[in-house]
Computed example of a mutant assay.
Amino acid sequence: MKCISESIRKTLNKKKLSPSDLARMTGYTPQYMHNLLDGNRRWNETTIQKTCDALDLELILVPRKTG
């Protein structure tokens, strides 16, 4: 889920928010949010949804580009 973490970090930077700000917005602890963003914890449907809601993001799945 590294791509999700990278996209969320870019959005945080664009909105001038920190991972701790995002933690407050989603109801998670700052440590938990840092662990998600650093790849030390796995994203799940609930954490992705709360994060997308907090940052006004939409998750869209598209087929991978091959070769």
Rank of each mutant, 00 (worst) to 15 (best):
D53V: 15
K10Q: 14
K10V: 06
G67D: 13
T66W: 08
L17E: 02
P30W: 02
I4P: 02
I60S: 12
E45V: 15
M33P: 00
L59N: 11
E6A: 08
L55I: 09
L55V: 10
C3S: 14
G67S: 12
S18F: 06
K15V: 01
S18D: 06
P63W: 07
S7I: 02
K10H: 12
W43T: 03
G27E: 00
T66Y: 09
L17F: 03
R41Q: 12
R9T: 08
W43N: 06
S7H: 08
P19E: 04
M1K: 09
I48C: 14
Q49T: 15
T11P: 02
M25Q: 04
K16L: 15
E45Q: 14
T51K: 08
K14G: 10
E58D: 12
Q49C: 11
P63D: 08
C3M: 14
M33V: 07
L36F: 02
N35F: 05
R64M: 08
Y32Q: 05
K14Y: 05
G39C: 04
V62N: 11
K16T: 14
E6R: 14
P30L: 03
T46K: 14
D56S: 15
W43D: 07
N40K: 09
Y32M: 04
G67C: 06
M1F: 09
L22C: 04
T51F: 07
T51Q: 08
H34E: 02
K50H: 10
N44L: 13
A54M: 11
N35S: 07
L22P: 03
D38K: 14
D56M: 13
K2A: 09
